Measured scan of single mutants.
Amino acid sequence: MDVFMKGLSKAKEGVVAAAEKTKQGVAEAAGKTKEGVLYVGSKTKEGVVHGVATVAEKTKEQVTNVGGAVVTGVTAVAQKTVEGAGSIAAATGFVKKDQLGKNEEGAPQEGILEDMPVDPDNEAYEMPSEEGYQDYEPEA
């Protein structure tokens, strides 16, 4: 019985440690998101679009440190934060509304985080759909 109880105690310690790591990862992701939003706020009209992409990228980098179902929630929060940063930029006159959601080359930025393969159960990952990809044929 002692062996059984000791095993359960060790398992509990492992769960607590994993929860603490997840909590730490979420806190880091939130900190990076805040950094990115402050970065966007300090940019001029020309830099705002690039700044919004930076927020998304920093958040995406930190999301990889967070495991399990938390990833889905962090990704949703990050996307809403990026959308909010863009709205703030438009409201303050840093950028025109028609410039939001495009990178410096004018290509749409939507789907940055949505296409990231995420499995809350950590069982399997699927690649994003290939609808947006084109076949590449090298020139002879």
Results as ranks from 00 to 15, higher is better:
residue 1 M to D: 15
residue 1 M to H: 15
residue 1 M to Q: 15
residue 1 M to G: 15
residue 1 M to W: 15
residue 1 M to F: 15
residue 1 M to E: 15
residue 2 D to F: 07
residue 2 D to Y: 07
residue 2 D to N: 03
residue 3 V to F: 14
residue 3 V to L: 13
residue 3 V to S: 12
residue 4 F to V: 07
residue 4 F to A: 00
residue 4 F to R: 00
residue 5 M to D: 00
residue 5 M to E: 01
residue 5 M to N: 01
residue 6 K to G: 10
residue 6 K to D: 09
residue 6 K to I: 03
residue 6 K to L: 07
residue 6 K to Y: 15
residue 7 G to N: 07
residue 8 L to G: 00
residue 8 L to R: 00
residue 8 L to T: 00
residue 9 S to N: 07
residue 9 S to H: 10
residue 9 S to A: 13
residue 10 K to A: 05
residue 10 K to Q: 12
residue 10 K to S: 03
residue 11 A to G: 02
residue 11 A to D: 00
residue 11 A to L: 10
residue 11 A to R: 00
residue 11 A to T: 03
residue 12 K to V: 12
residue 12 K to D: 00
residue 12 K to R: 14
residue 12 K to G: 06
residue 12 K to Y: 15
residue 15 V to G: 00
residue 15 V to A: 05
residue 15 V to Q: 00
residue 15 V to M: 07
residue 16 V to I: 05
residue 18 A to N: 00
residue 19 A to M: 03
residue 19 A to Y: 10
residue 19 A to D: 00
residue 20 E to F: 13
residue 20 E to V: 14
residue 20 E to L: 11
residue 21 K to A: 09
residue 21 K to S: 03
residue 21 K to E: 00
residue 22 T to K: 00
residue 22 T to H: 01
residue 22 T to P: 00
residue 22 T to G: 05
residue 23 K to A: 13
residue 23 K to P: 00
residue 23 K to C: 08
residue 23 K to T: 11
residue 24 Q to P: 00
residue 24 Q to H: 08
residue 25 G to M: 14
residue 27 A to N: 09
residue 27 A to H: 06
residue 28 E to C: 09
residue 28 E to M: 06
residue 28 E to I: 12
residue 28 E to W: 14
residue 29 A to G: 04
residue 29 A to V: 07
residue 29 A to N: 01
residue 29 A to W: 12
residue 30 A to P: 01
residue 31 G to D: 02
residue 31 G to T: 06
residue 31 G to W: 01
residue 31 G to E: 11
residue 32 K to M: 14
residue 32 K to S: 02
residue 33 T to A: 15
residue 33 T to V: 15
residue 33 T to E: 00
residue 33 T to C: 10
residue 33 T to Q: 00
residue 34 K to W: 12
residue 35 E to I: 09
residue 35 E to F: 09
residue 36 G to N: 08
residue 37 V to F: 05
residue 37 V to I: 12
residue 37 V to Q: 00
residue 37 V to S: 01
residue 37 V to E: 00
residue 38 L to H: 04
residue 38 L to C: 12
residue 38 L to W: 01
residue 38 L to M: 07
residue 38 L to V: 08
residue 39 Y to E: 02
residue 40 V to T: 02
residue 40 V to F: 01
residue 40 V to E: 00
residue 40 V to M: 06
residue 40 V to C: 08
residue 41 G to V: 14
residue 41 G to M: 15
residue 41 G to R: 10
residue 42 S to E: 08
residue 42 S to P: 01
residue 42 S to R: 03
residue 42 S to Q: 13
residue 42 S to K: 06
residue 42 S to Y: 12
residue 42 S to H: 14
residue 43 K to R: 11
residue 43 K to E: 00
residue 44 T to W: 15
residue 45 K to T: 02
residue 45 K to I: 15
residue 45 K to D: 00
residue 45 K to G: 10
residue 45 K to S: 07
residue 46 E to T: 15
residue 46 E to K: 03
residue 47 G to C: 09
residue 48 V to H: 00
residue 48 V to P: 00
residue 48 V to N: 00
residue 48 V to I: 11
residue 48 V to W: 13
residue 50 H to K: 08
residue 51 G to L: 14
residue 51 G to H: 06
residue 51 G to A: 08
residue 51 G to Q: 12
residue 52 V to L: 13
residue 54 T to A: 04
residue 54 T to G: 03
residue 54 T to D: 00
residue 54 T to I: 07
residue 54 T to V: 14
residue 55 V to S: 01
residue 56 A to Q: 03
residue 56 A to D: 01
residue 56 A to M: 13
residue 57 E to P: 02
residue 57 E to R: 08
residue 58 K to E: 02
residue 58 K to V: 14
residue 58 K to T: 07
residue 59 T to M: 15
residue 60 K to Y: 15
residue 61 E to M: 09
residue 61 E to A: 06
residue 62 Q to I: 08
residue 62 Q to V: 14
residue 62 Q to C: 15
residue 63 V to G: 02
residue 64 T to H: 10
residue 64 T to V: 09
residue 65 N to C: 13
residue 65 N to V: 10
residue 66 V to L: 12
residue 67 G to S: 13
residue 67 G to Q: 12
residue 67 G to A: 11
residue 67 G to W: 12
residue 68 G to D: 13
residue 69 A to E: 02
residue 69 A to V: 12
residue 69 A to Y: 08
residue 70 V to Q: 04
residue 71 V to H: 04
residue 71 V to D: 01
residue 72 T to V: 10
residue 72 T to Y: 02
residue 72 T to R: 10
residue 72 T to Q: 14
residue 73 G to N: 05
residue 73 G to M: 10
residue 73 G to A: 15
residue 74 V to C: 06
residue 74 V to F: 03
residue 75 T to N: 04
residue 75 T to G: 08
residue 75 T to K: 03
residue 75 T to D: 04
residue 75 T to I: 11
residue 75 T to Q: 07
residue 76 A to G: 07
residue 76 A to F: 10
residue 76 A to C: 10
residue 77 V to A: 06
residue 78 A to D: 02
residue 78 A to Q: 01
residue 79 Q to H: 12
residue 79 Q to K: 12
residue 80 K to M: 14
residue 80 K to W: 14
residue 80 K to H: 09
residue 80 K to E: 04
residue 80 K to C: 10
residue 81 T to R: 03
residue 81 T to G: 03
residue 81 T to M: 10
residue 81 T to E: 02
residue 82 V to H: 05
residue 82 V to T: 02
residue 82 V to D: 03
residue 83 E to N: 06
residue 83 E to T: 07
residue 84 G to D: 05
residue 84 G to V: 12
residue 85 A to N: 06
residue 86 G to H: 15
residue 87 S to T: 04
residue 87 S to Q: 08
residue 88 I to A: 09
residue 88 I to W: 11
residue 89 A to T: 06
residue 89 A to R: 07
residue 90 A to I: 14
residue 90 A to G: 00
residue 90 A to T: 07
residue 91 A to M: 06
residue 91 A to N: 04
residue 91 A to H: 04
residue 92 T to P: 06
residue 93 G to C: 14
residue 93 G to W: 05
residue 93 G to N: 04
residue 94 F to R: 01
residue 94 F to G: 03
residue 95 V to A: 15
residue 96 K to Y: 12
residue 96 K to I: 11
residue 96 K to S: 12
residue 96 K to W: 12
residue 97 K to I: 04
residue 98 D to W: 12
residue 98 D to I: 14
residue 99 Q to K: 06
residue 100 L to M: 15
residue 100 L to W: 11
residue 100 L to R: 07
residue 101 G to Q: 13
residue 101 G to H: 14
residue 101 G to N: 15
residue 102 K to L: 14
residue 102 K to P: 06
residue 102 K to W: 12
residue 103 N to M: 05
residue 104 E to Q: 11
residue 104 E to W: 03
residue 104 E to N: 15
residue 105 E to I: 01
residue 105 E to H: 15
residue 105 E to L: 06
residue 105 E to V: 13
residue 106 G to N: 03
residue 106 G to E: 03
residue 106 G to W: 12
residue 107 A to H: 15
residue 107 A to K: 08
residue 107 A to E: 12
residue 107 A to N: 15
residue 108 P to V: 11
residue 108 P to S: 03
residue 108 P to W: 11
residue 108 P to C: 09
residue 108 P to N: 10
residue 108 P to K: 10
residue 109 Q to W: 07
residue 109 Q to V: 04
residue 109 Q to I: 13
residue 109 Q to Y: 06
residue 110 E to C: 10
residue 110 E to Q: 03
residue 112 I to T: 09
residue 113 L to M: 07
residue 113 L to W: 07
residue 114 E to R: 10
residue 114 E to M: 07
residue 114 E to H: 14
residue 114 E to C: 05
residue 115 D to R: 11
residue 115 D to V: 05
residue 115 D to I: 09
residue 115 D to M: 07
residue 116 M to F: 14
residue 117 P to N: 07
residue 117 P to S: 04
residue 117 P to L: 06
residue 117 P to H: 07
residue 117 P to F: 06
residue 119 D to A: 15
residue 119 D to N: 09
residue 119 D to W: 06
residue 119 D to S: 01
residue 120 P to A: 10
residue 120 P to H: 10
residue 121 D to M: 05
residue 121 D to H: 07
residue 121 D to N: 09
residue 122 N to F: 14
residue 122 N to M: 05
residue 122 N to A: 01
residue 122 N to H: 10
residue 123 E to Q: 06
residue 123 E to G: 06
residue 123 E to F: 04
residue 124 A to H: 06
residue 124 A to F: 05
residue 124 A to E: 11
residue 124 A to P: 05
residue 125 Y to S: 01
residue 125 Y to R: 09
residue 125 Y to H: 13
residue 125 Y to D: 13
residue 126 E to V: 07
residue 126 E to D: 04
residue 126 E to G: 11
residue 126 E to M: 12
residue 126 E to Y: 05
residue 126 E to K: 13
residue 128 P to A: 08
residue 129 S to G: 10
residue 129 S to E: 07
residue 129 S to D: 08
residue 129 S to R: 06
residue 130 E to Y: 13
residue 130 E to I: 06
residue 130 E to Q: 11
residue 130 E to S: 04
residue 130 E to L: 06
residue 130 E to P: 09
residue 131 E to L: 10
residue 132 G to P: 13
residue 132 G to D: 10
residue 133 Y to M: 12
residue 133 Y to K: 12
residue 134 Q to Y: 07
residue 134 Q to K: 10
residue 135 D to F: 06
residue 135 D to L: 10
residue 135 D to G: 08
residue 136 Y to H: 09
residue 136 Y to V: 08
residue 136 Y to A: 05
residue 136 Y to I: 12
residue 137 E to C: 08
residue 137 E to T: 04
residue 138 P to T: 00
residue 138 P to N: 09
residue 138 P to R: 02
residue 138 P to Y: 08
residue 139 E to R: 06
residue 139 E to H: 13
residue 139 E to T: 10
residue 140 A to S: 05
residue 140 A to I: 05
residue 140 A to L: 11
